[in-house]
Nucleic acid binder design. Structure first.
Lengths: 336, 336
DNA sequence: CAGCGAGTTGTGACCGCTCACACGCCCTAT
DNA sequence: ATAGGGCGTGTGAGCGGTCACAACTCGCTG
């Protein structure tokens, strides 16, 4: 457990005080920009700090103040699309005077990871996961009073959350197909253990039922880029007819198009396809993909804003905010 | 600067000691798995810990030991492709008993970010950036003796680094074009302020010179997915002939293919294209892209292994490790 | 000229943990 | 009988900051 340390000791606040000929408290005051320091001593202390290359020890400060000014984003199981939100989150946290640090973990290690974050005295947590098997009560227990916001996902209970409205997004996509005249709509689902996969699937079914349409063939996928390919094989193997496919994300749509081509079916001439997520490559795919866009920068910013207000104004009400996705019509769908 | 805290106080090691009827040191021993505790007291203490929901305060431990068992990966300016490496890095860090935390920053804020990490007593730093304007001496100064490894990039000096061999990768790609009989090779470069953009460009030039070939038209790009499109317009506008294009990354290749199609040029029938990076979508593009693959999982693992050995065996020699990329031949290139 | 308040500085205690060391105990070797 | 050596446990000090409070120097007022 023990290793030899090798770094030469860094100057402490007391070293600076000694060098500048003031008390350590005065240095601390300068550090915290207290107004009650004469500008003479302030400049002197600042100069000494610079000369000695002084860096405040955050661990000591955290220990004394019980505040770390750190927010932690915990990503469970996947680096998927969400990573685009991280840069906005970092920026937003900065604006409020916090550092955002990101850790990745797995479902199994989640409790442990949260414990460590809590033990590290982070001021707030962002939980990024779509898994349906993560329950609100467990999160509340594990976080032990540290404010947190769940980004994406849906555990169905009253914890702070900011997410995209999957029902709305799916309805946009499917309604688009209906508007184009499609009545036989097949489906490649996402991972049903994920909230997004689950909701997109059930919303599709609901909407078809509302229109008294029989669902076309459906294959359960897992959001992975390779899956679309095999899923299409399975769809075709059913022998059922369909003129359009609702595919739960763009990644699977990419490989699905490929599979169709190999079977001599062209998109959108023979089959219309609508995807989900609007990856950056979707616009340049052949054909450019009709899909549903979710504004990741916005969700990142809002999540941090909400978290910070939970931290700094503890009476902030718990709510769940849903952001509306947007339909992007390109060339993978056509009227029949 | 001050806010009201609201959380009820967490139990400390002394609370546990009191409750279990032992001294705080004994609890500390249990915590650190010291062998010199009778199994009686150990189990009793462990039980009390669980009952009281005790979590060790990492800030206090860090302060006392000057060790945080945290590694910090700093990502400068981009979440590009590297994010695939982060999951392997997290796993590798775990295996060595460290937590990996990731922070994003910009070139301008880099010094500040490193200072904060150092002040947080992280045990090691990973710097992820390709920018050429980040100099080794500055990094050495900013990190103040905290071990660090640069992943990717190349500042040309003796700091610990693990990176992909851009020269080798580029030669594979260009040699492939030459082998197919191409002699008029155009180019869309990456961002020349980045090491990868710079090296890929110059390696292409060098190799063509070795074969006494005149470089085809060249347009400077920036690695962004939108750029390939306009770059192709510019290439065609030169009026020069070319049968193949070396494109500095797959993202630009995607949109480049599009632009060619709009001009009635088919890939690979009229134009061969070789990209770089092997994005996950590249295999399912139309046409599937010939490209150069870099093993991100491997680089992540090696980086952490190297960093940990720098931390735990300070006599570990400084070296620069280059990983060989691999040519992936698909359908965007053909013999002429 | 005593008294007061504002501005500036210093002192002690404490945050929660670990380290070095001392202590008591029982068992064994001389 | 005594010294020595584990083992298990407790005590004091310290890591590098912050907080609460005391104290000193002014200038101003009544």
């Amino acid at each position: 457990m023990k290793e030899t340390r090798h770094k030469r000791p860094r100057p402490t606040l007391r070293d600076v005080a000694h060098e500048a000929g003031v008390s350590y408290q005065t240095v601390s005051r300068v550090l915290n920009e207290s107004p009650n320091v004469s500008s003479d001593t302030r400049t002197r202390v600042l100069r000494v700090m610079r000369e000695m290359n002084y860096r405040p020890n955050r661990a000591a400060r955290t220990l004394a103040t019980q505040r770390s000014y750190t927010l932690e984003a915990i990503i469970v199981d996947s680096w998927n699309s969400e990573s685009a939100a991280l840069s906005s989150m970092t920026r937003a946290a900065h604006n409020f005077g916090y550092q955002l640090s990101i850790v990745a973990t797995t479902r199994d290690a989640l409790e442990h990871t949260i414990h460590i974050s809590v033990g590290r005295q982070v001021d707030g947590l962002v939980l990024i996961t779509q898994r349906r098997d993560i329950e609100a009560p467990a999160l509340l227990e594990w976080s032990e009073g540290v404010p947190f916001v769940q980004m994406t996902g849906d555990t169905g209970l009253d914890i702070p959350r900011v997410a995209f409205d999957q029902v709305h997004g799916t309805r946009l996509a499917v309604q688009h197909l209906l508007d184009l005249g499609h009545r036989q709509i097949a489906e490649i689902t996402g991972d049903m253990r994920m909230v997004d996969g689950y909701k997109r699937h059930h919303t599709l079914r609901d909407l078809l039922a509302e229109h008294h349409l029989v669902p076309g063939p459906s294959v359960e996928g897992d959001f992975d880029i390779n899956t679309g390919y095999s899923a299409v094989q399975q769809l075709l193997a059913t022998g059922e007819n369909f003129t359009a496919v609702f595919i739960a994300n763009d990644w699977m749509a990419f490989s699905a198009v490929h599979a169709f081509l190999e079977h001599g079916l062209r998109v959108p001439e023979d089959i219309s396809i609508v995807g989900f997520d609007d990856m950056r490559t979707s616009a340049f795919f052949t054909p450019p993909l009709t899909t549903v866009r979710q504004d990741l920068h916005k969700i990142g910013r809002l999540t941090i804003e909400y978290l910070v207000s939970l931290i700094e104004q503890p009476d902030t009400p718990v709510h769940q905010r849903l952001l509306a996705p947007e339909l992007i019509v390109r060339a993978s769908t056509r009227k029949i």
